[in-house]
Amino acid sequence: RLIESLSQMLSMGFSDEGGWLTRLLQTKNYDIGAALDTIQ
């Protein structure tokens, strides 16, 4: 599930440099909407 969510976020133009996006998705239970809300 992480790989699916991460690949979708990467395709939106986000980077996972340093693993920050992986950690964010894990804390949000791989919910892309919740991750995007946090980023904004």
Rank of each mutant, 00 (worst) to 15 (best):
R1E: 12
R1N: 13
R1W: 11
R1F: 09
R1K: 14
R1D: 11
L2P: 05
L2A: 08
L2Q: 05
L2D: 07
L2F: 08
I3P: 09
I3A: 14
I3E: 15
I3F: 13
I3R: 14
E4K: 10
E4F: 03
E4R: 10
E4Y: 07
E4H: 11
S5I: 14
S5V: 14
S5W: 10
S5F: 13
S5N: 04
S5M: 11
S5G: 08
L6S: 00
L6F: 03
L6N: 00
L6K: 01
S7Q: 14
S7N: 15
S7F: 11
S7T: 14
S7E: 15
S7L: 15
S7G: 12
S7A: 15
Q8F: 11
Q8M: 12
Q8D: 08
Q8I: 15
M9H: 02
M9G: 01
M9P: 00
M9T: 00
M9V: 03
L10F: 08
L10V: 12
L10A: 11
L10Q: 11
L10M: 11
S11N: 13
S11K: 13
S11G: 13
S11D: 14
S11M: 13
S11Y: 02
S11E: 15
M12L: 10
M12I: 06
M12T: 06
M12D: 05
M12W: 09
M12S: 04
M12P: 04
M12Y: 07
G13K: 00
G13Q: 03
G13M: 07
G13E: 06
G13Y: 09
G13L: 09
F14V: 03
F14M: 04
F14R: 00
F14A: 02
F14I: 05
S15W: 06
S15T: 15
S15F: 09
S15V: 11
S15N: 14
S15D: 15
D16T: 03
D16P: 04
D16Q: 04
D16F: 02
E17L: 09
E17K: 06
E17T: 12
E17P: 06
E17G: 06
E17Q: 09
G18D: 12
G18Q: 08
G18Y: 08
G18F: 09
G18V: 06
G18P: 02
G18N: 12
G19V: 00
G19S: 02
G19L: 06
G19Y: 08
G19Q: 05
G19P: 01
G19D: 06
W20L: 04
W20S: 03
L21V: 05
L21N: 01
L21D: 01
L21Q: 00
L21I: 06
L21A: 00
L21E: 01
T22H: 03
T22L: 03
T22S: 11
T22R: 06
T22W: 05
R23A: 13
R23F: 09
R23K: 13
R23V: 09
L24E: 02
L24S: 01
L24T: 01
L24R: 00
L25Y: 00
L25H: 00
L25M: 02
L25I: 05
L25T: 02
L25F: 01
L25V: 02
L25N: 01
L25E: 02
L25W: 00
L25D: 02
L25Q: 01
Q26A: 10
Q26V: 13
Q26D: 07
Q26H: 12
Q26F: 05
Q26N: 08
T27M: 14
T27V: 12
T27N: 13
T27C: 14
T27F: 10
T27I: 14
K28V: 15
K28A: 12
K28R: 08
K28Q: 11
K28D: 07
K28L: 15
N29R: 05
N29T: 01
N29M: 09
N29V: 04
N29H: 10
Y30K: 05
Y30I: 06
Y30V: 04
Y30F: 13
D31L: 06
D31T: 04
D31F: 05
D31V: 07
D31A: 02
I32P: 05
I32F: 07
I32N: 04
I32K: 04
I32L: 07
I32A: 04
G33M: 14
G33T: 13
G33E: 15
G33V: 14
A34F: 07
A34P: 02
A34N: 09
A34V: 08
A34W: 06
A35E: 04
A35S: 07
A35N: 01
A35R: 00
A35P: 04
A35V: 15
A35I: 11
L36I: 10
L36G: 03
L36W: 07
L36H: 03
L36K: 02
L36E: 01
L36M: 10
L36N: 02
D37P: 02
D37S: 12
D37H: 12
D37V: 13
D37A: 14
D37W: 04
D37F: 05
T38A: 15
T38E: 15
T38W: 15
T38L: 12
T38M: 12
T38G: 07
T38N: 08
T38F: 15
T38Y: 15
I39R: 01
I39D: 03
I39P: 03
I39N: 01
I39Y: 03
Q40I: 13
Q40G: 10
Q40W: 10
Q40M: 15
Q40F: 14
Q40N: 14
Q40A: 13
Q40H: 14
Q40P: 07
